[in-house]
């Protein structure tokens, strides 16, 4: 680093980081509980991940390696700008490889490669309250959480089945954490819900505009809500990735021309690249991925 005036490490001042770490500790102690925190203005608009950025800034150390993904991709605007933000304000190493990263900030996907102990996954959360659209009063939803009064959440799933014949919620699919709190897993596709269960990595959720932090400590039980006769089902795709051929992973639809041409490719760009780089390693280029 030069002698020129620079940002404090990770942009936020130390007092703020300390305040956020306190909230994080509380959140880790009560898995799934939404801890209020004094969210700061960040040099980016709400909705771009201000909550996630504050959490990331508070957990980063000088020897951390950061990966940022936006819908699974390392190379889209949100991911690129947040990665640059921390390169500039914290001077830390960054990577696109899931296995090399110690901190991963994500907007709505969990990487396909399994996470391990010692890694931290930071989610950007737009709306932390799973009951928000069922009960608009925040005073009331807090009371419902406190009293574990969750019939309402089940009513939402009931309505889904009544209207569509199946549970039509495909993202922000509500989960029960450690047998206690109902949590909105941020708008991750429900495909990723099973990855949250008993995950060895720390999972932190930051909602900047809503000023809430919640967390899943490693190896926390996370159960997706359902009915006995309409059990939770993971999204299934009837094909593999058009680029790497992998199956059983989450695919993005990409429109390729204006005549209806389209292809389905891995949403996780790092995973796709690594599969194409080493096809022989795991067989015939078609791989079942461990969840």
């Amino acid at each position: 680093m030069s002698d020129a005036a620079t940002y404090n490490f990770g942009y936020l001042d130390e007092q703020t980081k300390r305040m956020i770490r306190r909230a994080l500790l509380k959140a880790m102690a009560i898995p799934g509980y939404q801890v209020p925190f004094a969210s700061r203005e960040m040099p980016m608009p709400y909705g771009w991940g201000t909550g996630g950025v504050q959490v990331t800034a508070s957990v980063l150390g000088a020897d951390d390696t950061l990966k940022v993904i936006d819908q699974g991709a390392d190379d889209t605007t949100n991911a690129v700008s947040i990665r640059k933000f921390f390169e500039r304000t914290a001077g830390i190493a960054t990577t696109t490889h899931t296995s090399e990263a110690t901190v991963i900030q994500t907007r709505h996907r969990i990487p396909e490669a399994p996470l391990r102990e010692g890694q931290i996954l930071v989610y950007q959360v737009p709306i932390p309250e799973p009951l928000r659209f069922l009960e608009p009063r925040e005073t009331e939803t807090r009371r419902l959480h406190a009293l574990e009064d969750y019939g309402l959440m089940q009513v939402k799933l009931y309505e889904d089945i009544a209207r569509h014949g199946h549970i039509a919620t495909t993202y922000a699919y509500p989960v029960k954490v450690d047998g206690r709190y109902i949590m909105d897993p941020s708008p991750t596709p429900k495909f990723d819900n099973p990855k949250m269960d008993m995950c060895p990595a720390i999972q932190l959720f930051g909602a900047g505009r809503e000023k809430r932090i919640y967390a899943l400590p490693p190896y926390t039980k996370v159960v997706s809500l359902d009915f006995e006769d309409h059990p939770f089902e993971r999204t299934k795709f009837d094909r593999g990735c058009a680029l790497c051929g992998s199956e059983g992973i989450y695919l993005d639809e990409v429109v390729t021309d204006d005549r209806g041409g389209r292809m389905f490719v891995c949403s996780d760009t790092d995973f796709c690249e690594s599969q194409r780089a080493a096809p022989s390693e795991a067989g015939h280029g078609l791989h079942e991925v461990p969840r």
């Binding site: 009064d149 019939g151 089945i161 009544a162 009915f227 006995e228």
Partner: peptide, 17 residues
Amino acid sequence: GGNVGERLMATGWRHYG
């Protein structure tokens, strides 16, 4: 149906049918 079922679900019913 959801209105009538709410109390049932709140008291632990988890079978849609």
